[in-house]
Design a protein around this nucleic acid. Structure first.
Lengths: 350, 350
DNA sequence: ATCAGAATTGTCTTGCGTTGTCATTATAGC
DNA sequence: GCTATAATGACAACGCAAGACAATTCTGAT
């Protein structure tokens, strides 16, 4: 059975003393190697590393936390319902492991009134050396200020650049949204509707601005009556779809600020016996797994979440080590994924 | 900017010494109160708790890890691509927090040859006090044995009861699958196809057995030609759908071992201009978010993941404290969710 | 070869905040 | 008043980081 006393089985772990003995050096030197101290001869370093290898040495984290007054932990605060978080986690962890950092996660509700208290409690007393913030939590008023105030290094993963006060890894949401409009315009669409995302999500604004940019570039009229406000959910997509399908003349293409809402619009189209993309083109944003599984498959935009998270984590580890990154923000480009839900505009509308 | 030296800002945390002084007792007594030790007079306990409250005291985890030779951490090993893992995490964390436990996660690929090594490395030297295992990683040969061998208490979250060697929190997959067949039979279906899941996932077997049980109960013939083998993915669902739609006579209902495959079958039906559920009923399993977003919405089965994970974590914490749970396995019942993708069988087939 | 100065390594020490061990003191039962 | 037991305290130990400083080795210029 699984609850035997642990001590019985797990082999006694080697300590720094053992490594020092094995390598024929002092424990201070082992410590220097471990902490990337400068003045260590490569040959000595090699000897020590070899000894570590031979003994299967792994530093005792509680001890170094206690002695070093740092935690070797990175916090990740995220909105609990977020589905895309596993990608973020994977990316963060892949950067953490080689540096012997671990990850503590803190799911929460970004609408909870106690959010700031939760975050404060999560961070103090020094339970993490650094913090990664992701939307929509990072967009909540006071969150980034709180983190600054507590003096914890942090990196924000975001759709578009924020102001100048945070290290940021972001994508080019605005630019790529413009690209989507371009794609639709090339297919002959003129009446291109837009379904906006939840107003509290800053990332959603950038997508909207990109839409406006694209319309301007194509010199198309922006018709306010076919710009509708959604709330990021599938259900709100249905509402928006219904509203849009009532408009006369109907839009020939609908660009939604996320895939969930696009799926809602598709459902409405199905119910009205509109064939996609013959009668209506629909595009989304995010490339959620669902984008491939709806029928027809959704044209959308893919954010490279794992690489972003990985970069954010390694930047953060640099910050913790006082190696200030060269640039305040790093941009990783999103990608337009064309599938079957967009096609040539209906003839009569061309 | 966010990388100011942390020490500058975070208020100095009170230690046990401060609490002891404030309460007029020794630090050992404070420690006893903290660890729910028995022999403490209620009056003393109250005094200490009051002092903690007043000072905003929170225990220093690295210190108690080091001194106590335990980690107050719980490991969660999971397959990296798994989408349902956020629910599991939420459930585990909600049980951990009140007990002052933290969660370390270890995403991995359950097909990686190095899986066992990864797990061993994740666990030793005592980096976690206990482990929660979830499918499909928990089904990989040697994983549970390894965990036993290392002597780490563990709880397995699973579809159906395993053998007698693990503490388990499971659902009634088999029974509820039978219930799904019953549902279809009541709608008049006789030719009910089944799409099996990946053979390496034990949970998938139980769903199949439940299907067989249901067919037996309804005294329906089991036609091997409409039982096809999938691989859990959307793509394999498409393959299976194509194979099934070629059969003569066609099945009038398809029960899939998960929602992804069911979505694939739906896509095939759409392409062949079959209307769901008029011409074909389709059912899934898992109630993934996608189940509500496909068109038509999918009849499926919902596993109460968060409650399961929560129960598993509190059982595990009990095991760590040597409080052996009364029962080796706990069952939490799944729920049949009837939506629009199942309906009465076509007349000619009734 | 010689020597100054720099680079590298070692010794010794202290402290991080808690828990475990064992000794000591208070309390209750008779 | 004595014993058994409950309650509390004193002190070492956990494994490592980091500082102060001494000792050693290396480097390059003379």
């Amino acid at each position: 059975m699984s609850s035997a006393r642990p001590e019985a089985q797990i082999a006694q772990q080697a300590t720094m003393v053992d490594v020092a003995k094995q390598a024929g050096v002092s424990i201070k030197t082992v410590s220097r190697v471990l902490n990337r101290s400068q003045n260590v001869k490569p040959a000595t370093r090699a000897k020590v590393e070899q000894a570590m290898e031979a003994l299967g040495y792994r530093p005792n984290s509680p001890a170094r936390m206690l002695a070093g007054n740092r935690t070797y932990l990175i916090g990740l605060i995220y909105n609990a319902s977020s589905r895309y978080i596993t990608s973020i986690q994977n990316g963060v962890l892949s950067a953490c492991r080689p540096e012997h950092y671990d990850l503590l996660i803190h799911p929460c509700s970004y609408t909870a009134p106690s959010l700031l208290d939760q975050i404060r409690e999560f961070i103090t007393p020094p339970r993490v050396d650094g913090l990664i913030l992701v939307p929509p939590v990072s967009d909540v008023d006071g969150v980034r200020e709180l983190v600054h105030e507590l003096g914890i290094p942090s990196v924000v993963i975001s759709g578009e650049p924020l102001d100048e006060t945070d290290w940021t890894v972001c994508t080019n949401d605005r630019e790529i949204s413009k690209e989507m409009v371009r794609h639709l315009y090339r297919l002959g669409h003129q009446r291109i509707a837009f379904v906006r995302g939840h107003p509290a999500h800053k990332a959603m604004d950038d997508r909207y601005r990109g839409y406006l940019d694209g319309m301007a570039e194509a010199e198309l009229d922006v018709d306010e009556s076919i710009i509708v406000q959604g709330e990021n959910t599938f259900e709100s997509g249905i509402d928006c779809g219904i509203r849009l399908m009532r408009r006369q003349p109907r839009p020939t293409a609908v660009f939604c600020a996320n895939d969930h809402m696009a799926t809602g619009v598709i459902k409405v189209a199905h119910e009205r016996k509109l064939e996609i993309p013959r009668d209506l083109s629909v595009a989304g944003f995010d490339d959620m797994p669902i984008a491939e599984q709806v029928w027809p498959q959704l044209t959308t935009i893919r954010q490279p979440l794992e690489p972003m998270a990985q970069l954010a984590a390694s930047q953060l580890i640099g910050l913790i080590r006082d190696e200030t990154p060269k640039e305040l923000r790093r941009v990783i480009e999103s990608q337009l994924i064309v599938r079957q839900s967009t096609g040539p505009a209906p003839a009569e509308a061309a």
